[in-house]
Design a protein around this nucleic acid. Structure first.
Lengths: 218, 218
DNA sequence: TAATTTGTTTAGATTAATCTAAAAATTTGT
DNA sequence: ACAAATTTTTAGATTAATCTAAACAAATTA
């Protein structure tokens, strides 16, 4: 198995290369892992040695298949534990990240699979992020940022692209939690903010910055 | 907080000083933690520096109050996770120790207390060991080894003093799990083995070695 | 009680992960 | 295309946890 630290690097590289399939840079990894570039370089050599990443000096890195598998497995654990914390222990969606960050490193396939079953094989975590199944497969939904929607369009809030507690608490307060139905009632030209109807009842205006981080299924 | 490693030393010292309230020796700790005596000495200095143990060169160690609290808290977590694994995830009592050994180091009081409530505030783990409450209090039951019982005496199996998977599986096979009622039917002089009636039905003979490790409430 | 055995500590290395400062490579801007 | 700026890597230290071998202390035993 890989060390706690190695796992965190793999996860960081995975997240950084999601979306844009490009190589990830040393500095990006350093920022994500709260370390210095020099430390990252050292670790990259080690991970390359173990064939978990493809690394060429000065050219950035990509995960190998083995590396992707390892990363996906950690993410699976992280998200399952988040579901557990919210569904079974009554935590709020903004409280679970740090604890899951620790739990994700517990090593036991049996444990993860039994937890998965115990939770009823959930397909998404409390923030709407998809949970890889036991073979590592991830079912991505087609999600759209509210900031990309047009007047009159409607959809269901199904994810967020910002996971900070402060942002999640804000959504909670505004009634924009997962599952909420919204209709865009007006795009305000002046500052780009967006007026929408929540659950056919409440009218609300949200800033462009907030709208960019809420993901919706049309 | 204390490191993973420090926590394991505290736990080892706690377990070694249970029962006999004497100071614990360097070698005892080395054996329990699978390290060498020299490494233990180093760590003892560190723990003494942090006022978690009372340490005098060549004289062994005892835990300070702070040290006891830290150790009890780890044990509380370990035993609660064991209950979770057995009661909620369907693990057998001989399968949970190693996983709980990892889970016990997860750091969050809220998590532990919510887990405790979720499990219905259990008083004992799957092996019958008492679970400290959130203030650190441990309710010890008066348990007797089967090997110390007399012919005609009866009791309920309520604990074990040997936690190895091989031993627990054996008890399972013999029907001597927790809650089982037994009556001593005969003490066999020849080899010290003991004949007993299980749940008013089955007659069985167990070796003195096995009998020594089964604990009973009279 | 002196000698031997056993147990513990010190000294000096090692490994993993990190850092700072300096050197080297790459990218950018004119 | 070359100089400047940025990014990445190397070099050399540091910290936590561990080890082996040697020195030292305590307990045992003859």
């Amino acid at each position: 198995m890989h060390s706690f630290t190695e796992e965190n690097y793999l996860k960081a590289i995975y997240h950084l290369s999601e979306g844009n399939m490009e190589a990830v840079s040393t500095n990006q990894i350093a920022e994500m892992t709260n370390t210095k570039a020099a430390s990252v370089t050292d670790m990259l050599k080690k991970l390359a040695e173990k064939k978990l990443i493809n690394y060429i000096k000065y050219q950035g890195v990509t995960l190998t298949n083995t590396g992707v598998n390892a990363a996906v497995n950690i993410i699976r654990k992280h998200r399952l534990w988040e579901v557990f914390l919210v569904e079974k222990l009554g935590f709020k969606w903004d409280e679970v990240h740090d604890i899951a960050e620790e739990l994700e490193h517990i090593n036991s396939d049996t444990l993860v699979n039994r937890l998965d079953d115990f939770l009823g094989n959930p397909v998404a975590d409390p923030h709407g992020d998809p949970i890889p199944d036991r073979s590592g497969l991830i079912k991505h939904k087609k999600l759209v940022k509210i900031s990309d929607m047009q007047t009159g369009e409607s959809g269901t809030v199904s994810g967020v692209s910002e996971h900070s507690s402060i942002f999640l608490k804000l959504l909670e307060k505004m009634g924009l939690t997962l599952g909420t139905k919204i209709i865009i009632s007006e795009l305000i030209e002046f500052d780009g903010s967006i007026m929408l109807t929540i659950d056919q009842k409440t009218e609300r205006t949200i800033s462009r910055e907030v709208a960019k981080n809420i993901l919706v299924i049309l």
